[in-house]
Design a protein around this nucleic acid. Structure first.
Lengths: 349, 349
DNA sequence: TTGTAAGCGTTATCAC
DNA sequence: GTGATAACGCTTACAA
């Protein structure tokens, strides 16, 4: 019942160190170290004795000291533009869980969508000698990235890419997702489709916009520039874009929002303006929020597993950290269309 | 244009160390250290020379070495039951941002709602000699907590409490929130109100349940046990509870869900079963999700700023880490009722 | 004002 | 098999 870690003496006992364990057994620190790490041959007797002493003294090796010596911290840095966003939070969880079982800790930084903060974050992490980096860039350049990291630390980018940089990359099937959304709207007979795009600083934004333009062209439709709005990934931006689109002389009959946030902004404006969805305007979204079925109208969207993005990225990173960087590997996480009512379909249970 | 961190020589240049800086100026390491840390008096000339050399060599002090020596890591551990949950993700962001500006890094651990994992996480963090702990407990006991941390590391609990443990605590106004919700349902004339409570392992769960019982009693109503369901904080649990409640011989006329997740589960079941909200059943929720206004029907709820919870907790922790633990401080983050349609009110824009 | 030396807790390289 | 000894990169008495 008594707390093992405090003593009756006035002095609070310091945590046991390797030297303490060694002394307690009567061997040298190096022997104790070898015993605990199972390195090298040694008499079973002393090994057992050391193990017993370590247990008895409640010895906990200091990762700090170990890292200083071995130059490995078993820590990876995780950098995202906004941890509070459902997507990044889920990716974080996926990554964290894989990393934890692989024996790595994660140090988290939020770049607040700023390239400068992102560079600061990377600098801090590199200073800490993290073994690897997982970053969803806010739009850093290849050169800046190399300058900060010295290209010494394995890095896997996810969500958005930085040219050919890094030991690997995980992104979504952006083009495929946009294609299926555009096709679906075409099937519903829409001719004037508007795009509410996200930030063009990141490839996750530009790939979707590019894919949209390509899909419309491929279908032989023409594409007025006024039907394309780009801005930050926020609900407010989605609302503003929708308002602008609805005020057009000939407004679109359908809107494709490039993220759930943007779709939500669109939804709320339509509600305010009493625009009936999907009759007066159809809406589809790249990104299926977990409450998509409960919105009014329920949201037709392209969905995917956000935690899988983090998990896959972490997997590549562990690979790169342990086996050295081999081929640069790119993974695309698949997406799938979920038909609901906002496009004009019926809910499917 | 050329990368500063690589050399033309075959050998990749090692990052400059304090010794390198000192040597380059022709002073001792201690002098260089003092110059860089601005400690002690010294000739402006040498100080300037050291600073210049550090700059020129791109010197970056090693936090690892520094921490080993000073026994301060400028790192705080952050432990939550589920980072992917919107509430914890927002709290994380609030905490992270305050900590970052205060000069601390955050090391993240997810306890996956398991007490054992939570203890492991705490152990890991303590081993890493974090300067402080921010934990939303999954239900650890006081004694276990003390055993792991040795009560050496300042800890601020948030969301849920551990008896009187820790240097401080930040929670929501659970009782006030439940009271206002129950009162509001009473105003709408409801006599049979059911509660879908969350996990009773955590005080955030038990406080809400207790407050509910008290509020009903205070109003002189009687409270059949069948109207209270407790379970995990998941949408699935909310759905299951709702299904059970609706099958009762005399089902409730109103439901109070103790979290947004639980309310969502309720909502989806009502949709499946064609139960009309709010006419056949009223629903209110403790926790106002950011898309609450866009649900069908829009959700009446008690809301609060989740990032403020993290920020406040981080504030208390920084205080405790820098000025030593003084009085144990408890903060309650305020909540406020948001009337929407699910209770029978009209939307207010 | 500056330098010397010890030490933070490990691990790695040698001898023995 | 095991033990000195020397790092890892920094801070801080204490001495000069």
């Amino acid at each position: 019942l008594r707390n093992r870690l405090t003593t009756d003496e006035s002095t609070r006992r310091r945590a046991a160190t390797l030297a303490d364990v060694a002394a307690s057994v009567g061997v040298s620190a190096s022997t104790a170290s070898r015993a605990l790490n199972g390195r090298g041959e040694m008499s079973p007797a002393t090994r057992a004795a050391v193990l017993e002493a370590a247990e008895r003294l409640g010895f906990r090796p200091s990762p700090l000291a170990r890292s200083l010596r071995t130059r490995r911290t078993h820590t990876v840095g995780f950098v995202v533009p906004d941890v509070a966003s459902p997507f990044y939070a889920a990716a974080l969880k996926g990554a964290q869980s894989l990393l934890q079982t692989a024996g790595y800790r994660v140090m988290l930084m939020d770049s607040e969508q700023s390239v400068q903060s992102e560079m600061d974050a990377l600098q801090t992490l590199v200073d800490h000698q993290v073994d690897g980096l997982l970053v969803a860039t806010a739009g850093i350049g290849v050169q800046d990235f190399a300058d900060v990291t010295g290209d010494d630390t394995p890095c896997v980018f996810f969500d958005s890419l930085v040219d050919g940089a890094g030991a690997g990359a995980v992104t979504l099937e952006n083009a495929a997702g946009i294609d299926v959304l555009v096709d679906h709207l075409h099937e519903h007979g829409h001719e004037r489709i508007a795009l509410i795009a996200g930030s063009q600083q990141e490839t996750s934004g530009s790939e979707r916009l590019d894919a949209f333009v390509a899909a419309i062209r491929r279908a032989g439709r023409n594409l007025p520039g006024e039907l394309i709005c780009a801005g930050p990934w926020t609900q407010a931006a989605g609302a503003e874009a929708t308002r602008a689109l609805l005020e057009l002389d000939s407004p679109p009959t359908a809107i494709l929002a490039c993220s759930a946030e943007l779709a939500l902004g669109c939804l709320s404006v339509c509600r305010d303006l009493d625009v009936e969805l999907p009759d007066e305007l159809a809406l589809v979204s790249f990104d299926d929020p977990y409450f998509g079925a409960l919105l009014e109208p329920s949201l037709t969207a392209v969905g995917y597993d956000p935690s899988e993005v983090g998990r896959a990225a972490a997997g590549l990173l562990v690979e790169a950290m342990e086996n050295g960087e081999g081929e640069r590997r790119e993974v695309r996480v698949p997406v799938a269309l979920v038909r609901r009512r906002s496009c004009g379909c019926e809910d499917t249970p």
